[in-house]
Design a protein around this nucleic acid. Structure first.
Lengths: 187, 187
DNA sequence: CGCATTATGGCAAGGTATTGCTGTATCCGG
DNA sequence: CCGGATACAGCAATACCTTGCCATAATGCG
């Protein structure tokens, strides 16, 4: 059964990848058998979803970092600063653990990014008085100013990236990505 | 005008990030004003789209690499091997330039991954006879066997990740991500 | 034919993702 | 009170993302 499944999968991957070859050229084309519910078609579509996620993420970091490069920031620093700029976070700050959960990154990855933005004077890390293990991360005054200055470039980037999307489409994309994030977060 | 736009944006970012704070807890909640077409609501939704893209990508790499870890592979190696296993690519191989375009990664990033999988004996790199600058990248026999063995784990991963998605939803997600990838690829 | 320009791929440097492990702080039960 | 278990954050190692730059190969024009 497992062997038959693998062979079956391989056969349909053959057909899927043939379609993917065409997708490489960014030709707008419907998948051959969308919505028929057969397990093999599901593999096919899933493969495309995850491959596009990979591609889109690579391009987001490349283009997004360019968009905020005048501020000397990267997309990851943008995400950290955005999280800290929220009104619920700006006064009390956030712990490393809270930021990790919010950004879906590992502690060590976050520690590196925080080290960088702290070095740039954009955030401060202070030991919490009530618990000596915890670090409270907050934007500095420079960080807040930098963040505000970044918002115009961020807005321009969003406009350019989603120029062909209707509001309903952008909302659908958000909602589907939200559900995917939840699902992956539980695996 | 630009200043007014920035202040306007900041005000609505305030409201958006308040919603994002709730989203952190993965509570399923509709955006407050989806679809009304106002520029500030667009910033709001765009912000969520890109943040979810960031989160989903982080989790995909984390969970996906675990899914293929028995084969000693990472998600990026999976993507490279998948590209090379396609029938259009398997005999003649692909050049570095073709792989770069397909995966939406930089040459240097790809060179690193290729170096790794070549070291594992999964791919071979040969100079093309007709053009001495070009490298032809192909799966080895071991690479092909490893790829086939990986497909069962890949299928199981897809099933787990998209278990709550209908075929139509998965297809919609693919199509929207496809359009986003195209858009970002042109920026 | 020769030279300037363009194309291809890889080294170098820097930033960010993961897991494994460790030191310090806190909590809870005996 | 004390010790074992748990929580928090950061160092170490590895893998992958970017841009800048360079050596070699190929092309096109005068």
């Amino acid at each position: 059964m497992r062997i038959a499944k693998s062979i079956n999968m391989l056969l349909y991957f053959y057909m899927a990848t043939k379609t993917l070859t065409r997708q490489t050229k960014m030709v707008d084309r419907r998948p051959a058998r969308a919505g028929d519910g057969a397990p093999d078609a599901r593999f096919d579509v899933a493969n495309r979803v995850f491959f596009r996620l990979y591609q889109a993420s690579n391009l987001m970091h490349r283009t997004g970092t360019r968009a905020v490069s005048d501020h000397g920031a990267t997309t990851q620093q943008w995400a950290v600063m955005g999280a800290l700029a929220r009104p619920g976070a700006s006064a009390a700050g956030l712990s490393v653990k809270e930021l990790m959960a919010f950004l879906c990154v590992s502690r060590q990855s976050l520690t590196l990014v925080l080290g960088r933005v702290e070095g740039l004077g954009l955030v401060e890390r202070a030991r919490l008085e009530s618990d000596g293990r915890v670090r409270r991360i907050r934007l500095t005054a420079l960080g807040r100013r930098t963040w505000r200055a970044m918002l115009a470039d961020i807005g321009a980037y969003y406009t350019a990236a989603l120029t062909d999307f209707s509001p309903a489409e952008a909302d659908t994309l958000f909602r589907l990505l939200d559900r995917l994030t939840k699902s992956l977060g539980q695996m």
